[in-house]
Amino acid sequence: MTSYSKNEVLIAVKDVNLSYDKQILRDINFTIHNIVRPGMNQGQVISLIGRSGIGKTQLFKILAGLIPPNTGTVLVGLEQQPVKAGQVGIVAQNYILFNHRTVYDNLRLAMKHDSITLGDKEKDALINDYAAKFDLTEHLKKYPMQLSGGQRQRASIIQQVLTGNKFILLDEPFSGLDALMIDRVMELLLQVSTLDELNTLVIVSHDVENSLAISDTAFILARQKDQEGATITETLDLIEMGFAWNPAIRENEKFQHLVAQIKHKI
């Protein structure tokens, strides 16, 4: 097995509860550790898997600091500070970008805040560098409406990376994509996760197979019998199981068995 270690806690979700007129989320607890592999920047890819309508989007917004839970906390970063909107990047399912700005301007906007001290030339170089890495160079002058779904998704992810966020939440990143595009998105996400040691991607999805195939850890969000509200019912350490960091894992029989089991459980 590849040698690795799980070091500092990067994200800790403690006793999160959310209810409106009824309980949506109940006692959500999980932690995400910094996974270290010798000789490389090994980021983290985590999946939150649950079926549609279970409360994934609400948990997504809580993790991003966009809505506060009724009780509980979300702590992020090495300092484990309570999450604030802006500390965690989000890539929405419909890849929201500003339609009135070109792709270049959208990316530039991500570096406008005070904590980025780069000069104009350095910012341009960074944009060009990411655009080249993610196959967007020829689309920089286009408007988002002129891009395909895959291109919008890439632009949206780069925008969040350029903001300087180490933590990025992705809402249903495989939704509506064909098999070939799914493979490309998985490659892209792995590429983003390995850009920096602390980069942490949290995929919120109902797509069991693809989410498990790309992740090192997966949390299953489901309802327990006779209990209102969804909670984490299972944690899968895919590294320990020998399923992580293997591009061909979807063809593995044991993996397929696991996928079938999880599909049955959610």
Binding site: A64, G65, A85, G86, I90, A92, A110, K112, T163
Partner: peptide, 11 residues
């Protein structure tokens, strides 16, 4: 989601 995007871009 546009307002949320602004928040993630630290506006």
């Amino acid at each position: 989601q546009e307002y949320e995007l602004c928040k993630t871009l630290r506006m």
